[in-house]
Design a binder for these strands. Structure first.
Lengths: 261, 261
DNA sequence: AAAATTGAGTTGTAGGATGATATGAGGACT
DNA sequence: AGTCCTCATATCATCCTACAACTCAATTTT
């Protein structure tokens, strides 16, 4: 078999809460210990037997959990010695706790990341989009417009619209990252709709998308970036999140006080 | 025990041929079958026992391998039925061969993503950075300046500088994403130095960093973004990659021909 | 003192046994 | 005939024991 070095970007476990595996629980637990510093980088994990005994599961479950951590680059297992926590620089693993996304503050940060990524992506897409990609983007836009209310289909079309733009950047990495974020957004929206019914501002939403699309057609990166940023800020507000001022256009914000973390 | 749903972005590296695990081999094998279409989306995998018998390993090994595929969102195991290959849309898992990073084109895309992310991050950091974070950034800058040539230590300090800025955005997601990209960059640089010795333009490099730092101190997001963008384009050139024009400042580029993907 | 041996501890692999869950076949009842 | 129930079967999920391979340190031997 090939000895490739691969990079895997993965969205783990969709919204099925139904039956979380035992190994998954162990993974969450160990992740928590590592994040909270109980298990610092360089530390050795308890032995598989100890973990099995402490958590009341079999050693196989522990092994599957550790296999995942190892696959994610969080720990390193050395036969005959033990399992060790890797330094954050080495681990290069992103973990987004989806439960944390239900916090409004985290949702705000997620939308901010989205703004950062997609604003520039729109500018790139405006320059590079092919006619075919324009058509695909238009198709999603039409599908979105067809919906009367903000239903699931509309959300799917909305996100597909954004993914298509990301694809039009002709940059796999940007596409990958934005797809990833979009998936998070989808989960977040599903949750947000449970706690408070969203405003049915389809008209506004579609209008914002149309402006983005027009900028792409015109091949105007500046306009595309601006329209995208405006849209994402609007979308954030519609799910109950208020983003800060546009960083690039509002230097005055530099004077506001910032509490140290 | 918590019932968290998690999302993980991970770098998996199995270039170490020395001790490739049995489960890793099985993962590679199944990945290959899925990629090549032998196992199409919707198909059911052979049962654990069949796989174990066919590959001559124990079921535990098969289980660990499948657990990883499941963690990556490639397959879905349903108790009592079997393990099924997910459709690419559902799987939301993209595999990037790191060998591809050694292609100049991919390196260019990676730097482009970096530009997208860090430009905006610099603007945010200019607004939000705390005094402590400024000090930390300065420390990395000094460490970088101390090096005579572009050695490993200098590279580490360089990347740490960027990570610290990402951290100063006060946005965990942005920080995480940029850290991830930085790690890819590090791998890329190590490779790039093998094929052709890099230019030792430490002075230039440090100068660019100083400009970024000054903008952060001044709290000027526009200047920070501009300095960062300029720096990343310069850094890309120093490793032999020429990025396109600044998308936001050069609308004229919209007219250039673009071959469809 | 240096080298070889031994032993304990740990992860890696093997294989069986049992529980949980989904599917489909067959029969009983309406 | 159609519906519902029960049961056998297939499969994953978990548990268990045992052994192999590896590392390290203490012990013994040279």
């Amino acid at each position: 078999m090939t000895s490739k070095v691969e990079t895997v970007v993965s969205v783990r476990s969709r919204n099925f809460v139904h039956s979380e595996n035992l190994p998954q629980k162990v993974v969450s637990l160990l992740y928590g210990d590592i994040d909270s510093g109980v298990l610092a980088p360089g530390n050795r994990l308890p032995t598989e037997q100890q973990l099995a005994a402490r958590l009341g599961v079999s050693r196989n479950v522990i092994r599957e959990a550790i296999a995942q951590l190892r696959a994610d680059g969080i720990v390193e297992a050395r036969q005959g010695i033990g399992v060790f926590v890797l330094a954050p620089e080495q681990r290069a693993a992103i973990r987004i706790d989806r439960a944390a996304l239900q916090d409004a503050g985290n949702m705000e940060r997620l939308f901010e990341l989205r703004s950062v990524l997609e604003t520039e992506a729109a500018a790139l897409a405006a320059i590079r989009r092919s006619p075919d990609q324009l058509a695909a983007i238009k198709a999603h836009l039409d599908r979105m417009s067809g919906e009367e209310r903000w239903e699931d289909g509309s959300i799917d079309a909305d996100l597909a619209f954004h993914r298509e733009i990301a694809k039009a950047t002709d940059n796999t990495y940007i596409h990958t990252f934005i797809s990833f974020v979009c998936e998070q957004i989808r989960q977040t929206i599903y949750y947000a709709r449970k706690i408070n019914p969203l405003h049915d501002l389809v008209t506004v939403n579609v209008g914002e998308h149309v402006r983005i699309y027009d900028a792409l057609v015109a091949g105007d990166p500046k306009a595309a970036a601006h329209a995208m940023r405006h849209h994402i800020h609007g979308a954030a507000e519609r799910v109950g999140v208020k983003l800060g001022e546009y960083p690039r256009e509002a230097e005055t914000a530099a004077k506001r006080k910032k509490a140290a973390t």
